[in-house]
Amino acid sequence: MVQRLLLAALVAAPLATFASPFTPAAPDTVGTTPPASRNQAPTESLPWYRPRHVLAQTGGGLGMVSVGAGYSLKDRLDLDILIGYVPRKYAGSRLSIYSAKLLYSPWTLPLGKTQKWAIKPLMVGGYLSYTHGTLNDEEPNQYYRGYYWFSTDTRVGPLLGSRLSYALPPTAKGRARNLSAYYELGSNDLYILSYVQNMKGLSPADILTLSLGLKLDI
């Protein structure tokens, strides 16, 4: 399971190198960055590994509260790494949930004339999560190979959502910053399988999850 997470991180690494479009700009243009370039066009190059935003969310099967950081590619592709927590009262044991989300948003639409607000009407993508701390955590030799064909702690699922952004004052170095609120509707592999095999009995609404979150550019 941990290997899978590492794999996800490895897959993410090359994306992250692309996530800092190198746009050289003379220092004296810093003060005149037009509002239209709000979309994270950094005026100085940041190291590739430096996260471009932090985020916090609830739900979506990724924790009662989950926090994380992420990378952006051309303001369209976001990769977020999250750590979530569910207290014992809500799950029978304390769960920590490690997850990676990849979301693509083709459009950013400005709202109003002030250029302060913008909306990404469509975010589409998926997530991979690993849950630690379940009561019955598949000990070695507990089962013979293939006893349970599914993983009890690794989930994958699709995501679909929207995001509303507010342009904060740029940083001292002139990088534009947004504070965004988002929702994501999702599901997971096991719910989808249950639905596909019971189309009469279950409805798509039965297998939906909702997450609500905030994202801040740093």
């Binding site: 979506g60 990724l62 924790g63 569910v86 799950a91 769960l95 849950t131 379940t134 719910y191």
Partner: peptide
Amino acid sequence: ASCQLVEFSPNQTY
């Protein structure tokens, strides 16, 4: 309804 939708974990007990 949205409380049910906002699922903390598929393994939750609430």
